[in-house]
């Protein structure tokens, strides 16, 4: 890789250097959380976390572990910055994002620290492009305080079965209602649209249901407009874990397998719709 030969390890002033042989491994997963322009990047020695929020009611996090990168050097415990995600994605696809086998864009992503731009070195077929994206003051992401101790219901489904349901969801419905229950209907997605309502029921013993752990019957409604972006992550994923806590907050965790068979996670948090919370 021509890029790796350029690295001069120690005397570099960067606080963060991350290299990927295939930039698609990053761009694909970032695409699945692109519903707002601004993304908060937080890098720790474990890897990179990218956060996008909407209306303070919904948050999406993409986790890319350090070992996904061919090189991941971080000189501080936490490096945080904010960039325009759309611009970043445009840069990552600057060579057209070819999906042809054997043709991939190599990436080296460097950040010098507060006040500096995020520098991307992209190389494909011997051509190198350097992109500098101005960074912004990182905002504090909303803490949804979703902790596994408060989880009342949890199911893990193969994404395949949810993809169908999500592709058919009645978009004239303002909300998606999720019912999880230890008894019938177990796991139900409901919409209430112009032409009537629709329910999708998943029995707990279905082959699509990898784990079913529901302790109480819970029915919550979530704004369709907030959940809609999560279908991008769903499309990429192979499994999804659906959890609700005692407050009715929803967590959707998607397990995404990238081109090289490595595993990343995308997580969505969503607040329930107020008016029906106390139903």
């Amino acid at each position: 890789m021509p890029l790796s030969t350029q690295s001069q390890a120690d005397d570099e002033p960067y606080v963060l250097v991350a290299s990927l042989d295939n930039a698609r491994n990053l761009s694909n997963i970032l695409k699945s959380i692109t519903f707002k322009d601004h993304a908060i990047f937080s890098a720790t020695p474990n890897g990179l976390k990218v956060t996008v929020e909407d209306s303070k009611c919904m948050q999406a996090n993409a986790f890319i572990q350090a070992d996904i990168f061919q090189e991941f050097t971080i000189k501080e415990d936490l490096v945080g910055f904010q960039v325009n995600l759309t611009v970043l994605l445009d840069c990552l696809n600057i060579f057209g994002g070819s999906t042809v086998q054997g043709v991939s864009t190599a990436l080296r992503m460097c950040y010098r620290g507060y006040g500096y731009p995020l520098t991307l070195f992209l190389e494909e077929g011997g051509v190198v492009t350097v992109c500098k994206i101005n960074t912004q003051e990182p905002e504090e992401p909303v803490d949804f305080d979703f902790c596994s101790n408060n989880v009342t219901n949890k199911v893990i489904l193969l994404s395949e079965s949810l993809k169908e349901a999500f592709s058919e969801l009645d978009m004239t419905s303002e909300v998606l209602q999720i019912t999880m229950s230890p008894s019938q209907p177990y796991f139900r997605l409901s919409t209430f649209g112009n032409s009537g309502n629709a329910h999708y029921d998943y029995p707990k013993d279905s082959e699509m249901m990898e784990l079913f752990r529901c302790t109480t019957t819970q029915t919550n409604r979530y704004k369709m407009s907030l959940l809609k972006p999560s279908t991008k992550a769903l499309a990429l994923s192979c499994k999804v874990s659906v959890r609700t806590d005692s407050r009715g907050f929803l967590s959707l965790q998607y397990l995404v397998r990238n081109d090289d068979g490595q595993i990343c996670f995308v997580e969505y948090y969503c607040c329930p719709d107020e008016e029906v919370e106390e139903e």
Partner: peptide
Amino acid sequence: NRLTFTLHCKHGLLKTHNLS
């Protein structure tokens, strides 16, 4: 006042559409 279409799918998935 609903016409109900129920589709019994593979893996036990049940789709119910109550249409006005």
